[in-house]
Amino acid sequence: MSSTNRFAYFPGCSADSTGISFTKSAEFVCKRIGIELVEIPDWCCCGTSAALVTDKNLAVALPARSLALAEKMDADLDVATGCAGCFNSLKSARHFAKQSEDNRAYVEDLIDMPYSASNDVFSFLEIMHRPENQELIKNNMVTTLHGLKVASYYGCALVRPSKVCEFDDTEDPRSMDELIELVGGEAIDWGYKVECCGGSHNISDPKAAKKLTERIYEDAMINGAEAIAVACPLCFLNLDMREKELNAIREAEGKSLFNIPTYYFTELLGMTMGGSFKELGIDKHFWPAEDIAKQALSARTQSDDTAEAKEVAK
């Protein structure tokens, strides 16, 4: 693990499109706490599950190319990425190359570039969760979430397979919860932290995907969540864009409606560090997210937990 806060940055294809709010908020937090992101020159798409279903070699070659380019740029830098899907593809390619010298040489041949597989890959979540960065986040806070009840949603690609991801607990990850609590939110215990949102079917089978998304909202609602935090643009899109559509269906079925905005965890961090909603991209959500955020940031009640939250802020 690199000890510095300088990383070769793999933005991923959604970084300046559907994942724009993640990019903006993550870059905001990084800037505030001094994490330096150096974009990998001419990185390409990681291939995601489309490559995996098409061809095993393609699923290795695409991410390996970007990893090799990162090495070429600066062999001392670990790679950072926001998108969980990209994280998983990059980590898997590296894992394959690390299995044996044969595998590594095979990958070099595939991409026609030298690749040592020495540099590791980290997600923003893992990087910001490092103790030294938690300390920096704490020091940069100007307010807190005042006990906002947040369901941390990790999804699949950050935690599975555990041998590849090497990140947190596979069934009950805690890192995002701890970051939420760090900035004064209340991380609720719920059951869908690591259940699939159906994001990979967002376009090809939206009906099936919606069912998965609905279960996530349902469990969050039952367990009293006021907001959902995510660490992946695909999960975000799938939750945020579908909430209204789900409500339309639920209304017809006579079921209770959802009213839970989804945030990137970096947006929640950024908010407490003084980032404006525009700076963080919170104004770009499909499901209105500004009101609850505003409420959270201003002390809502004079109750004890507000005092506690101030303690945290201090």
Partner: peptide, 8 residues
């Protein structure tokens, strides 16, 4: 059993 979750 694959998973146990707590709801209400």
């Amino acid at each position: 059993v694959s998973k146990i979750i707590n709801q209400n």
